[in-house]
């Protein structure tokens, strides 16, 4: 159960892509940072909720997954560059033949994982292609 508090701390960033922004140097951070490496003690950090719109920088398709993800194979994991600049790793929900570098994506709310049949359910953000989505 040691992962429960860790997940709980991450709820804002997982559910709503809340990161940080330094208004002094205009740099955006995801996951959130408490210190701006550019401005250090002169930083002016504030929470920033990312729109979640982004572009696939690169990706891989998982065919052999761990037990928790076996049911979902094959699935795509991508590095996504958000409009505001930061890059993050996320699942892109589409066929492996459909995903490509440069694809525009948007966020959706999904189950990220489960702690077996008895533990908590982790919810958060995944991505879908903008084209063809409602």
């Amino acid at each position: 159960m040691s992962t429960v508090p860790r997940f709980w701390r991450h709820i804002p960033q997982r559910y709503n892509l809340v990161g940080t922004h330094c208004s002094k140097c205009d740099e955006y951070y995801y996951p959130p940072r408490t210190i701006c490496p550019n401005c250090r003690r002169n930083a002016k950090m504030e929470d920033h909720k990312f729109k979640g719109l982004g572009t696939v920088v690169t990706y891989t398709t998982i065919y052999n997954a761990t037990d928790d993800f076996k049911r979902q194979t094959p699935y795509n994991l991508a590095i996504i560059e958000l409009l505001e600049g930061p890059r993050l790793t996320g699942q892109v929900i589409c066929s492996p033949s459909e995903i490509e570098i440069g694809m525009k994506v948007k966020p959706v709310f999904r189950i990220l994982g489960k702690e077996g049949d008895r533990g908590i359910i982790y919810y958060g953000t995944k991505f879908v292609p903008v084209e063809g989505s409602i």
Binding site: Q72, I93, V108, F109, R110, I111, L112, I121, Y123, K126
Partner: peptide, 16 residues
């Protein structure tokens, strides 16, 4: 539903 959708995730999408 998709593999990773349940009554919570679809409720969130509808509410958004």
């Amino acid at each position: 539903p998709d593999f990773d959708e349940d009554a919570v995730t679809i409720a969130v999408e509808a509410t958004r």
